[in-house]
Simulated assay, not measured.
Amino acid sequence: MSATYQKQNERIYWVDALRFIAMFLVYIGHLGSAAGRIYGFVYLFHVPLFFFISGLFYKEGAKIVATIKISFTKLIVPYFYYSILSLGVYALFLQKDVSTLPALLTQLVEAKRNFIEYAPQLWFLPCLFFVIVFFSIIQRFVKNKVFIMVAVTTSMALTIFIPQNPVSYSPGLPYGLDSALYYIFWFALGFCIKGGFITYFNHNGVAQKTITTLCGAFALLCFFGLHHHYANALTEVIGGKAYVLVWTLPTLILFVACIPLAKQLANINAVRYLGSNTLFLCGYEAIAKTSFVAFIGIAGHSLNIGDEYYTVVYISVLMFILYKVKSSIDLNKSKY
Rank of each mutant, 00 (worst) to 15 (best):
T67V: 15
I68S: 10
I68W: 14
K69P: 06
S71V: 05
F72C: 13
T73A: 15
K74E: 10
K74L: 14
L75V: 00
I76R: 01
Y81F: 15
S83M: 09
S83R: 13
I84L: 04
L85V: 07
V89H: 09
Y90N: 05
Y90I: 03
Y90Q: 11
L92M: 13
F93N: 02
Q95W: 08
Q95V: 06
D97Q: 13
D97H: 12
T100K: 14
L101T: 05
P102A: 10
L105C: 10
L105K: 11
T106I: 09
T106A: 03
Q107D: 09
V109P: 02
A111Y: 03
N114D: 12
N114Q: 01
F115W: 12
I116C: 03
E117K: 08
A119L: 08
P120W: 11
P120A: 02
Q121M: 14
Q121A: 13
W123R: 07
F124C: 04
C127Y: 13
C127E: 00
C127N: 09
F130W: 08
V133I: 15
V133Q: 11
F134T: 02
F134D: 01
F135K: 06
F135H: 07
F135R: 06
S136I: 03
I137D: 06
I138V: 07
I138R: 13
Q139T: 08
F141R: 03
V142R: 14
V142H: 12
K143R: 12
K143Y: 10
K145D: 13
K145I: 07
K145G: 04
F147C: 01
M149Y: 07
V150T: 08
V150K: 05
V150Y: 07
V152L: 07
T153W: 01
T153P: 06
T154Q: 10
S155K: 05
M156D: 06
M156F: 11
A157Y: 14
L158C: 03
T159R: 04
I160Y: 03
I162F: 15
Q164C: 00
Q164W: 11
N165V: 15
S168W: 01
Y169F: 08
S170P: 02
S170C: 11
G172S: 15
L173F: 12
P174H: 11
Y175F: 07
D178Q: 05
D178K: 05
S179L: 07
S179Q: 00
A180Q: 02
A180N: 02
L181W: 12
Y182C: 04
Y182H: 07
I184H: 14
I184K: 13
F185V: 05
W186L: 08
W186C: 05
W186M: 10
G190E: 00
C192R: 04
C192V: 14
K194C: 00
G195T: 09
F197Q: 01
I198R: 13
T199Y: 09
T199N: 15
Y200M: 05
H203W: 13
H203R: 06
G205D: 04
V206H: 14
